[in-house]
């Protein structure tokens, strides 16, 4: 059995926030906890390397479309945003190296595949989203901190209007991956994710 099919958990378990000891979502949907896959990959596939790859929390191969899912309970600071980006790239590299074949017999080995068939979902904590970020230490850091000013009301407004357009509003600059690494990118609060879960994973 392929490691991706072998390692399993519920989505709830994959959403566990170690720092705060809480689950971000409570879905019992069976997914592949991709952190475990990464650990296996580092241990079994590249034993002589000394890498520090990051990985998305969950991978889900549904029907036609598949998903990488990442849970972020804390404030998404610049450092965390960088980490999210690295997780995306590392996870895709690892996935492509695993020679996995989807249920339709298509090899999952390139961004041509993920651009056609895979989506990315980031689930974030709405309360922490609007909190002030950590103090930036450098001049450039302060500049960036000022540039990326999160506003819950602004986001709510933009989301509402995008919804009227039957489009999703993508936060944290992750829209750059839409139609590039992934077919679609979603950034949901826990509530939105739970509301959309049936729609997302059909």
């Amino acid at each position: 059995m392929h490691i991706i099919d072998e390692v399993q958990s519920t989505l709830e378990e994959a959403s566990y926030d170690v720092d705060n000891g809480t689950y971000m979502v409570h879905s019992k949907l069976t997914v592949c906890p991709f952190d475990k896959v990464k650990e296996w990959y580092v241990r079994e596939k590249i034993p002589y390397a000394n890498p520090n790859p990051k990985s998305n929390d969950a991978l889900y191969f549904g029907g036609r479309e598949s998903y990488f899912i990442e849970f972020k309970n804390g404030k998404i600071t610049n450092a965390i945003n960088y980490e999210i980006n690295k997780k995306i790239y590392d996870s895709l590299f690892i996935l492509f190296d695993l020679e996995y074949v989807d249920r339709y017999g298509n090899p999952v080995n390139s961004i041509s595949y993920t651009r056609r068939n895979m989506n990315y979902v980031l689930v974030y904590n709405e309360e922490n989203y609007i909190q002030a970020g950590q103090t930036a230490q450098t001049k450039d850091g302060i500049k960036r901190q000022q540039a990326v000013s999160e506003s819950g009301h602004r986001t709510a407004l933009y989301k509402t209007v995008r919804k009227l357009a039957k489009e999703d509003f993508v936060l944290f600059g992750l829209d750059q991956f839409r139609n590039y690494l992934f077919r679609n990118v979603f950034t949901y609060t826990q509530k939105e994710f739970e509301q959309n879960i049936a729609k997302i994973f059909t």
């Binding site: 945003n81 540039a147 990326v148 000013s149 933009y158 209007v161 995008r162 489009e167 509003f169 993508v170 936060l171 944290f172 600059g173 829209d175 750059q176």
Partner: peptide, 10 residues
């Protein structure tokens, strides 16, 4: 709106 959000993070 999406353009601005993308710009904000770039």
């Amino acid at each position: 709106m999406q353009m601005l959000e993308n710009l904000r993070y770039s």
